[in-house]
């Protein structure tokens, strides 16, 4: 007998169920968070929660984030900047003020990404209740650009901020892409004497530029 049959047989035996026995509906899914916030209130809450977890919010509503990204990158004088293939990011990189930065290709190799000093991506969604960015990796190539460099700059369209994670799960729907990452603040650990240290395996700094 295969392990599969052994396990399913044991489960059914212990539950007193027959193969293919029916299943009633699971408990209904209640609404658990707040869904009554308007746009500005969601942006405000997102900013507060992001700051509480050590991220920084920049407003780039007027210029597509140009001034904020220029300021953040130029002062670091990076040797290599990773970027995703999002149209928002591409438009920014092509701007005269930024095009001379040492951009990597959106299809850069892992080795190049490991050595990058910063990564610029967009986010597909955000969650106001927790200050979370949601990266849907089917829509944008940002799985590693948002993770490997020590600084992550993320462009977030204001209209993509949802109230809570329940709303996000309803929005994602089926079929799910192979990978969705939720990001709430910079990488952190408290494994040594429960003392908080940021930037362990992921970015040490997270900057969200609302556009």
């Amino acid at each position: 007998m295969s392990a599969r049959e052994t396990i399913l047989g044991a489960v059914r035996g212990h539950l007193g169920r027959n193969a293919g026995a029916g299943v009633g509906p699971p408990p209904p899914v209640p609404l658990l968070g707040r869904v009554d916030l308007d746009g500005p209130a969601k942006l405000l809450q997102f900013g507060e929660r992001l700051a509480a977890v050590g991220g920084t919010l920049h407003l780039g509503l007027a210029d597509g984030g140009l001034a904020a990204v220029r300021e953040l990158l130029h002062r670091r004088a990076p040797a290599a900047v990773a970027r995703s293939d999002a149209p928002l990011v591409a438009a920014l990189c092509a701007h005269a003020d930024l095009c001379r930065l040492p951009w990597l290709s959106p299809t850069a190799t892992k080795q190049e990404l490991f050595a990058a000093d910063a990564g610029v991506t967009a986010a597909q969604w955000a969650i106001a209740e927790t200050g979370t960015l949601v990266l849907v990796h089917d829509d944008e190539r940002h799985r590693l650009a948002s993770l490997l460099p020590p600084v992550h700059l993320c462009l977030l369209p204001a209209a993509r901020i949802l109230a809570d994670q329940g709303e996000l799960l309803r929005t994602l729907g089926a079929p799910l892409p192979p990978a969705v990452t939720f990001v709430t603040g910079p990488s952190r650990t408290a494994d040594i004497e429960l003392q908080l240290v940021v930037g362990v395996h992921g970015p040490k700094e997270l900057h969200v530029v609302v556009v």
């Binding site: 929660r49 977890v53 299809t107 209740e129 927790t130 979370t132 990796h137 089917d138 190539r141 799985r143 590693l144 994670q165 079929p175 799910l176 892409p177 192979p178 990978a179 969705v180 990452t181 939720f182 990001v183 709430t184 603040g185 910079p186 990488s187 952190r188 408290a190 992921g202």
Partner: peptide, 24 residues
């Protein structure tokens, strides 16, 4: 567990990468 409203990262993974050129 840690008293956080949400831990820093959640990965929701469904199958391997679907297109050869993708990450993952």
């Amino acid at each position: 567990g840690t008293g956080q409203a949400l831990s820093t990262y959640q990965s929701l993974l469904t199958g391997p990468k679907s297109r050869p050129g993708d990450e993952g």
